[in-house]
């Protein structure tokens, strides 16, 4: 009798999740699979089952190819950038006796920025007559079309994202630093260990758990880039910043190909899931082989 009452109570309290999970996870998930084998255009009442045609089309489409590659390009540019900048911030700030609160709050502020706002600021900052470009033209006679060149467009978006996440990741890394026992360094000093060795042999291994967290978080971010790209480049120039979200948005809500977009989304999810799984395993192996975990 007692257990039955508890069962009912448990499911009652968990019911918001059940309801939410049903309406906003299970049903859309099933619907998405179903849509992906139709040619529905989001508006017309009629549609046909087309089997795997959408998938065949998607696998051959330049937009999907671009999305696949661009995500990894972002990973190569954005992840090292944000890890480096948050390491620099964490190294600069940790252990400072005063202004702790000011630094924590101050460096966290960029995380509050809307992607629309940061994109707008950067667009203005890099506009043709901006001080930066005038300086480059005047001093180095460099005329950079920041958002019109494939690599620099990718770079600009990466910098915006790195700006946003640096403070947050630095916070994670700082707490990693703080968990390192100071006596280890003192012992190393007595043994005459130099700075470089100290970083590689002591700091990095002990920091590895925090570093692992920031790596996984930042890699996750690369699979969800949308706002900055939507505002600044629309996925261009020539697909150079065409992320998965951008491609799916374009197909579903600009071309109104709901069926096709669903198959792209399905491919995107599988790619995301497998990539993150492999990268995670690889990072764990790397840590283990070096004896860091």
């Amino acid at each position: 009798m007692r257990t039955r009452h508890n069962n009912r109570l448990g499911w009652l309290f968990a019911s918001p999740y059940l309801l939410y999970g049903l309406i906003f996870f299970l049903i859309p998930l099933g619907w998405s699979f179903y849509l992906s084998i139709t040619d529905w255009n989001l508006i017309a009442p009629v549609f046909h089952h087309v089997g795997f045609e959408n998938f065949m089309k998607a696998l051959k489409s330049p937009g999907v190819h671009a999305a696949f590659i661009v995500t990894f390009k972002f990973m190569i540019v954005f992840v090292p950038m944000v890890i480096a900048s948050s390491l620099v911030v964490a190294l600069a700030v940790h252990g400072l006796p005063r202004f702790k609160g000011l630094f924590l709050i101050g460096f966290f502020l960029p995380y509050l920025a809307s992607g629309v706002v940061s994109s707008f600021i950067v667009k203005g900052f890099l506009s043709y007559n901006s001080p930066v470009n005038k300086f480059l033209r005047g001093t180095f006679s460099l005329d950079v079309n920041w958002l019109g060149t494939p690599f620099s467009a990718l770079l600009v978006v990466s910098v915006i994202m790195a700006w946003k996440f640096t403070g947050y990741y630095a916070l994670i890394l700082t707490s990693g630093f703080e968990s390192i026992n100071k006596e280890i360094y003192e012992a190393a000093d007595i043994d005459g260990v130099n700075g470089w060795q100290r970083f590689w042999k002591i700091t990095l291994p002990l920091l590895y758990p925090a570093l692992f967290t920031t790596l996984i978080l930042s890699i996750g971010v690369t699979f969800g880039i949308f706002t900055e790209v939507y505002q600044l480049t629309g996925g261009g120039p020539n697909f150079a910043t065409n992320t998965w979200q951008m491609e799916i948005y374009k197909q579903a809500f600009q071309n109104l190909s709901a069926g096709y977009a669903s198959s792209v989304a399905l491919i995107a999810s599988v790619v995301t899931f497998i990539s993150i799984f492999i990268i995670r395993k690889f990072l764990e192996m790397w840590g283990k082989r070096n004896g860091w975990t």
Partner: peptide, 21 residues
């Protein structure tokens, strides 16, 4: 486990059908 699974599930796949719902 369901919560954890859903948390790490790539949510992008839900965009179009959630809109339809």
């Amino acid at each position: 486990n369901a919560v954890l699974f859903q948390m790490f599930f790539p949510a992008i796949i839900l965009l179009v059908p959630t809109f339809l719902i």
